[in-house]
Computed example of a mutant assay.
Amino acid sequence: MDATTTAQRAAGVPAADATRPEEVPWGSVWGQPAAVETLRAAASDPSGPAHAWLITGPPGSGRSTLAHAFAAALIAEPGDERAVHQVLSGTHPDLTALRTEGVIISIKDARALVERSYFAPSLGRYRVIVVEDADRMAERTSNVLLKALEEPPERTVWVLCAPSDADLLPTIRSRVRTLRLIDPEIADVAALIARRTGVDPALAEQSARHAQRHIGMAQRLATDDAARARRDETLRAVLGVRSIGDVVEVAGRIVQIATDDAKALVAERDEAERASLLRTLGVAEGAPVPPAVRSQLSALDEEHKRRATRSLRDGLDRVLTDLQSLYRDVLMAQFRRGDLINRELDAEIQALAAAWTTERTLVVLDRIAETRRNLEQNVAPALALESMLVTVASGRTP
């Protein structure tokens, strides 16, 4: 359980632009005015807010940022900016935030959340439990939360976040109030990225388009040359698949690219956490680790392995999302409608659209979606990708 995750880190973007005092805590939320007004009204309702909420929206829409802003509005007394900043930084004692570093949320973590939910608020108006990856709960784990959602303490509010309400069990959905976020426009995301990072507007637009409006990913593409290069390499490699030999080679390259990307995302954080733990334990830099503290380092190493596994799975999912955008473009070219996401590959897309039937393009899109589901079920990445690429090469499902 990570109770120190900030709202900005949860959304995958840095702190928002400077806000006026009257905007606290909502100034960190971007592009969701209707959702902000709904939650602002709920937080100030004299009769109290609904006891459980589900915030849904596409990746990068700011679900977690909004959840933490809502938590700050619930916990802090009006005008208490110190408490607001404590909640937003994850240090307030009445906030418990869970963002799993693994592939799924464990039953152990869910039980700890339920236990915490029955504590009375220590300083604030409410105790708030934020579950940032509620879609990563298996059925058994979801069932652990049911009773707490059915009969919550009077001053506890649950806030769950997921891409869609369909990602949760019906029994969970029936016990929460759902708030659906809107998908921002590409031009709006591009303007935000250009303002925050100072990159050229054309690069900001390209990054927003390639990220398909995912704010955090758009910012990374705009500011990381290597990330842009890896994306381009992956798409061009798949476009070049023609034979079974190509299938095996390209599947291996995709896994390696995703692995490198995952390492780039977590390596610096892992090293900082290890160094911080050693300092806390009184171990000087470069000194041997005493046997008495090795178990704590081993536990941290295990956490890092789980994080690396999740980061790799997320990286592969991003690759497949990019491939879906590519073959969506092919389909749009075949129907001669819609703007292309991958305009930089227009010549290749038009050639493929002329060579393939629409039925073959749809088969490939279905196969990519199936591969995403298979990877969620822990199918070996290389085998899943090889099977998908056979369909790309042949137009037929193996």
Results as ranks from 00 to 15, higher is better:
58 P>Q: 14
255 V>T: 08
121 P>F: 02
294 R>S: 12
85 H>A: 15
11 A>L: 09
331 L>F: 13
387 S>E: 10
112 A>I: 06
120 A>L: 12
41 A>V: 00
28 S>Q: 15
394 S>Q: 05
94 D>C: 03
47 S>W: 08
188 D>W: 02
87 V>H: 03
317 D>S: 15
26 W>N: 05
325 S>Q: 15
164 S>G: 01
272 A>Y: 01
99 R>F: 10
206 Q>S: 13
390 V>P: 10
165 D>K: 07
258 A>M: 12
388 M>A: 09
119 F>Y: 13
39 L>P: 09
155 R>G: 09
272 A>Q: 09
142 S>D: 03
220 R>F: 02
144 V>D: 03
173 R>D: 06
315 G>P: 04
317 D>A: 15
294 R>D: 10
162 A>L: 01
65 T>E: 13
175 R>A: 04
362 L>M: 10
285 E>N: 01
240 G>K: 11
127 R>K: 15
388 M>Q: 04
392 V>Q: 09
161 C>T: 11
36 V>I: 14
21 P>N: 13
81 E>M: 07
355 A>W: 06
269 R>N: 06
302 E>M: 15
77 E>I: 06
363 V>N: 04
396 R>L: 11
88 L>R: 14
357 T>E: 08
47 S>T: 13
201 P>R: 08
275 A>D: 11
284 A>H: 01
131 V>D: 13
166 A>D: 13
259 T>V: 06
184 P>D: 00
220 R>D: 04
107 I>S: 09
36 V>E: 03
62 G>P: 11
106 S>Y: 13
336 R>E: 14
285 E>V: 07
239 L>C: 13
233 E>K: 13
93 P>R: 12
195 R>A: 14
119 F>S: 13
119 F>W: 10
163 P>K: 08
340 L>N: 07
11 A>F: 04
70 F>P: 00
190 A>W: 02
210 H>S: 07
265 L>C: 09
332 M>D: 05
110 A>G: 07
108 K>M: 10
393 A>K: 07
12 G>K: 01
232 D>L: 15
227 A>C: 03
200 D>K: 05
276 S>C: 05
75 I>W: 02
78 P>G: 10
241 V>M: 09
66 L>A: 11
351 A>M: 12
322 D>H: 14
183 D>W: 01
188 D>M: 06
36 V>C: 04
226 A>H: 05
156 T>K: 01
209 R>C: 02
173 R>N: 09
216 G>F: 02
359 E>V: 08
